[in-house]
Design a protein around this nucleic acid. Structure first.
Lengths: 113, 113
DNA sequence: ATCATGCTTAGCCATATCGCTAACCAATCC
DNA sequence: GGATTGGTTAGCGATATGGCTAAGCATGAT
C-alpha cells in the first residue's frame, strides 16, 4: 500500500471532469482524431487539447501523429491502479466486519462460560 | 448512461486528493472523530474539516455529533457509481474488440470465397 | 505556389482549491 | 464559574483549473 500514490491523484483528477469523461467514453469505442473528439463537447480546440493533455498525463490516452492528424487511443490498463485502490478499500472494510465478527464470536464464547 | 453525471464529478474529485484518500483509508477501518482523522495528516483542523466536507458532499462519509465529538463513518455504497462507470467503459471497450473480431471474421470469410 | 485543414502555443480572465490564522461556539471537567 | 477540549466559521494568499481569442506552424489538396 503506497502512502501517497501520485498516479492515483492524476487518475482520479483526470476522471473528475465531465468533458474528459465524455472524451474517454468516445475513445472507449475506438481511436479518434482530436477534432472528432472535440466536436460533441461544443468546446474549442485549445480547451480540448488541454483536457487531452490531462488524460495523457494520467496515462488514460495515448496519442500519435499521422501526417497532420493526431490520433488518440484509450488505454484501459491505466484504470488498474484505480481498481486496485477500490479493492484495497473493500478489503479494509471487510476486514473491519471480520474483526467485528470476531468480537461477536468472542462475546458469545464468554457468555457460554 | 447519464450524459453528465454530477455525482461522478463529486466522487472522482473527492478521491483525487491524497489527504482525502488517507482519511478514507482510516475510516475504512472503522469510524473516527475528526481530531483522530486529522492527526496522521499533519494538517490543521480547519483544513481537515474542509476535506471532510468534500467527502461528505460525495457521499463517501457520513457524520453525526455525539456531545461535542463528531463521529465520521465510511459509506462504501458511495463507490458504486464509480464501479458502474468503470464497468461501462469496459463494456464499450470489449464491444470494440468484438466488432474488430467480427471484422476479422468477415475478412477471412471473404478470403475463403 | 497558394489555400484550407488540423493542430499547437501563448496568454488572458474568472473561478475554485488548498493551506493557513484568528476568533468563536459548545460541551465537559475542576 | 472558569478553564479545557473538540469543533466550527470567516477570511486571507498562493496556486491550479477551465474557458476563451489570437496567432503560428505543418501538411494535404488544387
Amino acid at each position: 500500500m503506497a502512502k501517497h500514490d501520485p498516479q492515483l491523484d492524476l487518475l482520479f483528477h483526470a476522471l473528475a471532469d465531465p468533458t474528459r469523461r465524455m472524451m474517454l467514453n468516445r475513445l472507449a469505442r475506438g481511436p479518434a482524431p482530436v477534432t472528432e473528439l472535440a466536436e460533441p463537447t461544443g468546446f474549442k480546440l485549445p480547451t480540448i487539447l488541454r483536457h487531452l493533455a490531462v488524460l495523457e498525463a494520467a496515462g488514460l490516452v495515448a496519442t500519435q501523429k499521422d501526417g497532420r492528424v493526431r490520433s488518440c487511443a484509450f488505454q484501459p490498463a491505466a484504470l488498474r491502479p484505480m481498481a486496485e485502490w477500490m479493492e484495497e478499500q473493500r478489503r479494509l472494510w471487510e476486514g473491519r466486519l471480520d474483526r467485528l465478527d470476531d468480537y461477536v464470536t468472542r462475546l458469545m464464547k464468554e457468555r457460554e462460560t
